[in-house]
Design a protein around this nucleic acid. Structure first.
Lengths: 338, 338
DNA sequence: CTACGTTACGAAAACCTTTTAGGTGATTTC
DNA sequence: GAAATCACCTAAAAGGTTTTCGTAACGTAG
């Protein structure tokens, strides 16, 4: 177990050639006879030789390593993004150095220094909300790509979920299934996701000649708020036939409260959530129609664009990534005059 | 941005000393005059010099990097463990190479090779259940520590949550608050966590001269199963006054079904969950008393022991990590004869 | 003044790989 | 028969850092 690992010198010696030839043989370069190459390869496998990545990196200046700087892994959104990114990097034979700054700017600075001293080839910054975050691109001599939370500098490369589009998708689905009096319950106003979606909803309703039922109810991202808002809404908007909820938790709360008030979902009221958080959206009764922001794909795409940026082909700007509508039971078509 | 990074040679030149002296000055070695040292340090800061970790690693044979091999980041349990580990490594100036094998043995092998070719100093393997997993220690020339899922080789170093102890904690709490007819709803039988906890429950009941109410109900880890099991249990065990649920989802389902059957929680029946998954345990009505397996600490401890193992001080065996009882509203003391 | 110890610094080797420039022997070309 | 070409291989340098060893300069004891 503690036996020294074989170097290319050992391989060359065993194969009876020089180090240079061994290197060329193993790296598929020309100028080496087929028989010689086989000799070297055999020697390498026999010694289970693996080139020292440090020495390679020292020489080439490339480490084939990227830093993954996440601001808060406890939250729900960073993980899938990170997962998608990790997957893309793994396929590209890149290694991922993971750093969780826990939303602390000091920790973030510390980690940036650490990553740079390790000579990462690039950096991917994963946020926890879609609110823009401070750019670090200018402080760093390698390409940076932002995922989920965009950089506040529009010249940087950012990938964000298309919240406005997701909301449009949802509302079009509600309208297509015969709903006309649609309300909106969502999280706090200082979340860009909440206001973006509100814009999408109002735009889509407008195009259909409809209006939002009541005012947008801004609150919290919790089930508790979903219940509370449901109580208010069911009282004030008796003719309500659909509600768009800012996340699946709010939707779950709404469904719960609606049933307690004797309203049937989806027969009386259709409910649509956001995030497609499956532990919730598949456990509500009825199961929850929701918008899936496809975060894993977002992370994957961001990683691929970091590759491109490392190769000098950056694509600046804030890129909106499409969302998907996942139809379950909470939005079955209403049957008017039944 | 593309300006070449400063090397120690640049620093030495600027300070007017040799490379060797510069190195010694920066690394706090003796044999360098205080004034000279300051000169070097000033030069280094002026050039914002950062030593090339590759060169250091090449020389020392240590990369100050560990591999973090997780089998399934999608699940809920790997993340906190991973988080605790990352935190410990960050503090120790170690970097973490993240690999998610997604429960696929082929991917795992691939990642192990990759990590070894990067000369990691050690490996931490994070599982998704507490069932033992195949050991990789013998295939790998560096120390390995297993977290959450133990290795199937007892000579390896593993850290697992103390499920039996957690169950004891829960049952003692129920008994202390006056409950005597306690049932157990949990996940599938092939989860070691489920059977371990069952053993803990029966042991504790035994010591108190009590018996389990009905048979242990093995099913799934879902809210749906919690509801189903509740319906069965409330029918067959009319005198039931407490239930220990295998996770918070089952508990949430139980609470929901119990309310629909007209049973009050905690007045009629106390409910205790497992995992302290706060998005659920703080959103149920009433909020859920539960066992917190303290996974972040588990990950942290595992990481620290990997350090020790890298320094040659391994601590073989399967180490059970203590759990915590988190008391909320679902287990308020029963008031007999009220 | 010699011998020796101490202090402060520098030269060079070592870590491992890849690449460049060159060298050797054999074959072909004029 | 000399020169050029070709195929194959090797020596050496480069990359950045740390460490070992050597060497001055200087002071002190004899």
């Amino acid at each position: 177990m503690t036996t020294r690992r074989a170097t290319i010198t050992d391989v060359a010696a065993l194969a009876g050639v020089s180090v240079a030839t061994a290197s060329k043989a193993l790296n598929g370069k020309d100028d080496v006879r087929a028989t010689t190459r086989q000799l070297v390869i055999d020697a390498a496998t026999q010694l289970s030789f693996q080139p020292n990545v440090l020495a390679q990196g020292l020489l080439s200046g490339q480490t084939r390593t990227v830093g993954l700087l996440t601001s808060d892994m406890v939250g729900r959104f960073g993980i899938p993004v990170l997962l998608g990114a990790e997957n893309a990097f793994g396929a590209g034979e890149m290694a991922v150095l993971l750093c969780d700054a826990r939303g602390d700017a000091i920790r973030e600075q510390h980690y940036i220094r650490t990553l740079l001293s390790r000579r990462v080839d690039g950096l991917i910054v994963v946020g926890e909300s879609t609110n823009p975050r401070p750019s670090i691109t200018k402080d760093v001599p390698v390409p940076v790509v932002y995922a989920y939370a965009p950089s506040d500098d529009p010249a940087d490369v950012s990938f964000v979920p298309d919240d406005e589009g997701g909301a449009r998708l949802a509302v079009r689905h509600l309208i297509a299934t015969g709903r006309t009096r649609i309300a909106h319950i969502t999280g706090p106003t200082d979340y860009k996701a909440a206001t973006d979606r509100d814009r999408g909803i109002r735009g889509t309703l407008d195009e259909a000649g409809l209006e939002l039922a009541g005012e947008t109810l801004y609150g919290a991202w919790s089930q508790r708020w979903g219940r509370l808002a449901a109580d208010m809404l069911l009282l004030n908007e008796p003719k309500l036939d659909a509600v768009f909820c800012g996340n699946d938790q709010i939707a779950a709360g709404f469904i719960e409260a609606a049933r307690e008030r004797g309203r049937r979902v989806p027969d009386d009221i259709a409910v649509i959530g956001y995030d497609n958080w499956e532990v919730l959206s598949e456990e509500t009764r009825p199961t929850l129609t929701t918008i899936d922001p496809d975060l894993e794909r977002l992370g994957h795409t961001a990683a691929q664009h970091l590759f491109a940026a490392i190769d000098g082909k950056a694509t600046p700007g804030v890129h909106s990534m499409p969302t998907r509508l996942v139809i379950r039971d909470s939005t079955a078509p209403s049957m008017p005059e039944l």
